[in-house]
């Protein structure tokens, strides 16, 4: 009973103080950033937020298993470009979306297989596949795909709910709700946390660790695919490097949301708030009249402060039962 209580309390704190921080920032912006709360700005932030969050939910799952994926940016570039090639043929969005999801799933499953079959630590394995993904695109094509038809840009240009909210936001909302329930109640998610906490005991308790990790990468890959199609359809031109560097934003969102890279902990809700905070930084400082040159420093400071504050709550508890700070994670 006591333990139960403590868990609830710690759950409250991580997401709770993030929410408080977010609210404070939003109020601050309302007072000092003139014009920040215009529909256009909110919607453009939400659109960028939606592709970040969708992919971050996938990354969150991977990190919970105490793995990581640094190839996401390169993977998204590949899916963006391949989707554009399909889009050039005039295929509509209902075809492009599953196509992108399948492509993302395939590429990410390669990562998963590589990690589980060779037992190479995920950070190194995905570092290697990053280079493959990055190199393969310019080989297959020269330059960019441009003058894409209206069927391709439909999502960004026309698909607005009530004529205002971009459809990407709705997609993000649906995925988030599913993820919230899935990660809380499904048996599969229990396995993820078990593997992240201790892979060996998870194995001993009868979980097929390898299969679970591969499936996790596949699901995450499908989410990266959704994210990629939102990024790709933003304009009528797609080049070979769209989405590059995305992985760092994703990992940062997940970490800011309180997920430990050691695995075994972390909630979707944290990632939801973490990604939102990071998505607001750049537009916010532009509206506040601060040079965009400071945006990265502010992001870095937010992450480090929040992580340190978050850790401070656990340090006491950890001293009692010291968990080995294993490996690099």
């Amino acid at each position: 009973m006591v333990q139960e209580k403590r868990r609830t309390a710690s759950f409250l704190t991580t997401e709770f103080y993030l929410t408080i921080f977010l609210l404070a920032v939003l109020i601050f912006l309302g007072i000092f950033a003139k014009g920040f709360y215009t529909i256009n700005n909110i919607m453009s932030i939400l659109n960028a937020y939606s592709y970040t969050l969708i992919a971050a939910i996938g990354m969150n799952m991977i990190i919970i298993t105490s793995n990581i994926d640094v190839s996401t940016g390169a993977l998204v570039s590949v899916v963006c470009f391949a989707s554009a090639a399909l889009g050039k043929l005039g295929l509509p969005f209902p075809v492009l979306l599953p196509a992108a999801m399948i492509m993302g799933m395939i590429l990410s499953t390669i990562n998963g297989l590589f990690i589980t079959k060779t037992r190479i630590p995920s950070i190194v394995a995905t570092l290697a596949t990053t280079q493959l993904f990055q190199g393969v695109l310019p080989l297959t094509t020269e330059g960019s795909i441009y003058d894409l038809p209206a069927t391709f840009t439909w999502l960004a240009f026309e698909a607005k709910i009530f004529g205002i909210v971009p459809a990407s936001v709705l997609m993000c909302l649906i995925i988030t709700v599913i993820a919230l329930f899935f990660m809380r109640y499904s048996r599969f998610s229990k396995k993820l946390y078990a593997i992240g906490n201790n892979q060996n005991s998870a194995r001993l308790s009868g979980i097929n660790v390898e299969k679970t990790i591969i499936i996790t990468y596949a699901i995450a890959g499908a989410l990266f695919g959704v994210s990629a199609i939102i990024i790709a359809t933003a304009g009528q031109r797609v080049t070979t490097t769209m989405g590059s560097g995305l992985e760092m934003t994703l990992i940062a969102s997940v970490i800011l949301g309180g997920t430990s890279t050691a695995g075994g902990s972390g909630k979707v809700l944290g990632t939801v708030i973490g990604a939102l905070i990071l998505s607001i930084v750049s537009p916010a400082i532009n509206y506040l009249g601060i040079s965009p040159n400071w945006s990265d420093a502010i992001k870095g400071a937010i992450i480090i402060i929040s992580v340190v504050v978050g850790a401070a709550q656990y340090v006491k508890k950890k001293r009692v039962i010291k968990v080995p700070a294993g490996g690099i994670s």
Binding site: I123, A252, S260, G300, V307, A311, K318, I328
Partner: peptide, 19 residues
């Protein structure tokens, strides 16, 4: 603060870059 090296240096990576 007992934060994993990867998280720490990822955050400071942004911080140093930003500064």
């Amino acid at each position: 603060a007992k934060i994993s090296p990867m998280v720490t240096t990822l955050a400071t990576m942004y911080l140093y870059l930003g500064i």
